[in-house]
């Protein structure tokens, strides 16, 4: 299915949070706009100065808040506005991705890309691909099920009957 085709009524529309750097990908997304490149509307961008600023905690928090997919995107190697932020991010997220995979998160939900300020078209493709992929994976209910357990919060102990169950907050 093409990402830009409107989903069937009531069909699953993934929610994707994108963490992007200000200088390359954010500007590339601006260019996609100026060039009027149409793309799926499922992505919400959070702007950071640099991929170096992007913390793995942002991603776990976004999943906690119901994101079905994540995009992390910044400047190509050697293009970082701050020289090396993307190199540090590359190591950080290489490890993070393997960790998530090991913990059983389908890494198809997390997209990493280098999109430069001139790559409006690439940004559109990254967005559409991510949306198509995550749509196929379905809602990330597994993560959403990891809800706050009121009993556990109050008593400090998870009651056995709540283990692995969806418990109303």
């Amino acid at each position: 299915m093409d990402a830009t085709t409107p989903a069937v009524a009531g069909g699953f529309e993934p929610r994707i949070t994108a963490f992007v750097c200000n200088w390359c990908t954010y500007t590339g997304a601006d260019l996609a706009g100026t060039s009027r490149l149409q793309m799926a509307s499922n992505v919400r961008i959070i702007r950071l100065p640099c991929t170096g600023r992007i913390d793995p905690m942002f991603i776990t928090k976004a999943f906690e808040r119901g994101a079905d997919g994540i995009i992390v995107s910044g400047c190509h190697p050697a293009d970082c506005h701050y020289n090396a932020g993307n190199y540090h991010a590359r190591r950080r997220f290489a490890i993070f991705r393997e960790l998530m995979d090991f913990l059983g998160v389908d890494t198809g939900r997390i997209t990493f890309s280098w999109v430069s300020a001139s790559e409006g078209g690439k940004w559109r493709d990254v967005v559409n691909d991510a949306v198509t992929r995550v749509r196929a994976l379905g809602p990330f209910t597994d993560y959403r099920k990891l809800v706050v357990d009121p009993v556990a919060t109050a008593t400090g102990v998870v009651p056995p009957e709540h283990v692995g169950k969806e418990v109303p907050a």
Binding site: T60, K61, E64, Y143, V147, A152, T153
Partner: peptide, 24 residues
């Protein structure tokens, strides 16, 4: 970032954080 009470969500965040902080 990491909910402190022992429930699945906070536990996940905690173990991700710990693993990342100790990587390497």
């Amino acid at each position: 970032w990491i909910e402190s009470s022992p429930h699945a969500r906070g536990n996940m965040a905690w173990h991700v954080a710990r693993a990342m902080h100790l990587a390497g």
